[in-house]
Design a protein around this nucleic acid. Sequence first.
RNA 1: GCCGGGGUGGCGAAAUCGGUAGACGCAGCGGAUUCAAAAUCCGCCGCUGGCGACAGCGUGAGGGUUCGAGUCCCUCUCCCGGCACCA
Length: 873
Amino acid sequence: MQEKYAPQVIETAAQEHWTSQQSFRVVEDADRPKYYCLSMFPYPSGKLHMGHVRNYTIGDVISRQARMRGHNVMQPMGWDAFGMPAENAAIQNNVPPAQWTYANIDYMKGQLKRLGFGIDWSRELATCTPEYYRWEQWLFTRLYRKGLIYKRLGSVNWDPVDETVLANEQVIDGRGWRSGALVEKRDIPMYYMKITAYADELLSALDDLPDWPEQVKQMQRNWIGRSEGVEVQFPYDLTTVGKSGVLKVFTTRADTLMGATYVAVAAEHPLARQAAEADPEVAAFVDDCVKGGVAEADLATMEKKGVATRLRVVHPISGEYLPVWVANYVLMGYGEGAVMAVPAHDERDFAFATRYRLPIKMVVASTHDSYAEVTAPWIDAYAEHGRVVNSGKYDGLRSSEAVDAIATDLEAKHLGQKRVQFRLRDWGISRQRYWGCPIPMIYCEACGDMPVPDAQLPVVLPEDVAVTGRGSPLARMPEFYECTCPGCGKPARRETDTMDTFVESSWYFLRYACPDNTSAMVDGRVDHWAPVDQYVGGIEHAILHLLYSRFFTRAMRDEGLTSASEPFTALLTQGMVVAETYYRELEGGKKQWINPADVTVERDDKGRIVAATLTADGQAVTIGGTEKMSKSKNNGVDPQALVDAYGADTARFFIIFAAPPDQQLEWSDSGVEGAYRFLRRVWAFGHRFAGECRDSLGAVASLDGRELPEPLAAVRREVHTCLKQADYDFGKHQFNTVASATMKILNAIEKAPTDDASAHEAVVAEGFSILLRVLAPITPHIAHALWQSCGFTGDILDAPWPQASEAALKQDRIELMVQINGKLRGAIQVAADLPRADIEKAALASDAAAKFMDGKPARKVIVVPGRLVNIVC
RNA sequence: GCCGGGGUGGCGAAAUCGGUAGACGCAGCGGAUUCAAAAUCCGCCGCUGGCGACAGCGUGAGGGUUCGAGUCCCUCUCCCGGCACCA
């Protein structure tokens, strides 16, 4: 055994051992409980970034510990390989997306292996291979025939110069990122998945996911946004609209219906279009609304504007005529694309009415914050429920009663009824892009829209394609889109849109159960492994990816493909990796970001950072604050360089130690040094005690029954206290304190007194065996090497997880804090089992009591067992 | 704008059910070792006042509940994530 800690040597050896033993290959096993631990698969962007390393380290720690607790662990890995970056790289470097993607996968796979993750590589999959996406296409055709996928118009960002559809992130300040042209909304035909058909189930099932973070469930609940309300119909005024019909709106506040003073419709609404034809002012406004992109964050922060039309609708109860406005804050995609406006009781309507001097009619009186009339400025009480006023026959009803009464009356008139509305919209999956899974549809003039027959699947994406950034490449490839109709055999045209890449990531976790099956999407093995027992990934996926996956699993369940409803039993959302940023301001205000590795920081005598300079020229740079590691801020740390310099174990230990998994992790080079220092100490200790441990293995088992000298009993107590704590923290997924526990154990056994040599050896051998096993999930290589050198049995991968000994934890005397009037004033030593009355006596007799009670009698004594005594006087 | 989360020493953090605030580590300071340095080891390390014993203050800000609040309640503030075509 080498004296010096040489991570590159021991890590290579451990990894070779695992490879030759096929240690992580896993098959179904009826004798052991299965444990499916999954980390979100990476997009193969080129090389691993620190966020990946964090994600997969957390997953690996969980996997390895589950294995030590006797589970049959599956930890697979694959590649979320379709997506825009491959097209961007193709445009930039003239490399076909497929070639770029496969080269990246190859490199990143090597990096994952070097980090020592316990992955079953026999299950590897890449979503850009026909072997994978053919099943996605197969399922598409089934869901299409079932009606769960349908086609309609959808709004997209259109770049009129590049004649291409842009993603929201490609629209910067309302302009196309490449062309700089002003982006506009355009409606094009798209396929939609009917996720709303599952809205109720997706919502209520959240209550049965106790091991999901409450915050994620809450975000999903709000996203689905179930609301109970009333659909109200406002009949068209024949004289102004010129035809009969009704304007439908949905409202949760039907109690305020009598306060509606106008209605507002979206620019895309049929009434807006009709008004625009006759009125140039309306036409101009509607045209204006087409400008800009479709991102909701932009629409919601826009100034609320509108224009009056000459159209009127009839109030369904009062019969009054209400003007129709077109407003940019009404979204066509939500509800009916129209709202009834009650300025007195809705803040947005209030602001709009105030701006355009529309009437405000108060119809609800708040029950606790009384106001006589609604006037500016807006106060929150206006929006409260209360008692209805100024509403004729409904006066005096409570808001909830008024909703019922109004709904009943509307129903009698056939002008409305109660209904449930969801905020959730159907999932548009069509993308006018090349590097994605082709949508398996054929268009025939005679037969219409035809799904591609099973026998003709997969529709293979051609891989040698020139990507230009203008238009859609597949739409320029007759060899791709020319085909024959499966119905009549006449020439037909193939769909050239591809699918949203969220589709691939909505079922990959099921395919891992049986990636080798060439004749079915999934087989019986899926119900052995599914659902995933522990899913680990970034909080940024809290809504979309996780919701789509929950929907897809149910859609597949209803196709008889799996019996699971929920894909992920437990979820751990990890925080971002952030680092300090530094920059210099260039002429014109542009910032030149400088990598932290190239910066020297100056500190004052207390260690506070006061200034920073560029190491190369010694000149000052500006400290820009802590931000998410990114290319754009140039504050990334390359995992490869880290592993080359310190080894995988140091990288893993630091990442686990620096912060709890769900919080953001602040990068620190000196923190990495600290982790390395600790592992060197572990190695040095192992080297020193390897022989001793081997000789004392037999004595470890009898430690519980052995009388130890108190200092050694204290060491042993500390070791087992740390172990018990580590167990508890593991259960909470608070791995940073598990890492702390390993440091505390080493501190304890290093300081163990040696005067009783035989007892010392036994306590240290036990302590070190516990240390290595607690460390094994975090730093598996060093644990593997030392476990062998110290003569412990078997492979540490399968060593049983240690159990804290109650005998070792037992204490005869304990210390209790003494508080006087809630302030800490001293402490007393008492027998651990001292009765409460005697504890009170001891506390009252303590120095602290004598000094701080000022001779006053104790009015009350509170004893918190094992912790403290508080004397109130 | 809407939804969700966070704020504790110079820094990362810990504190399990409302019960010793700051475990563990980083940085810093002092010392040992060394020709010297690195590495290693030992000690100190929330802030303010005091030679000291010690005292007061202290978990983003303000208020409340309680014998006792980082933890519970209300108001405010700053930072971060998501917002449906980045993944």
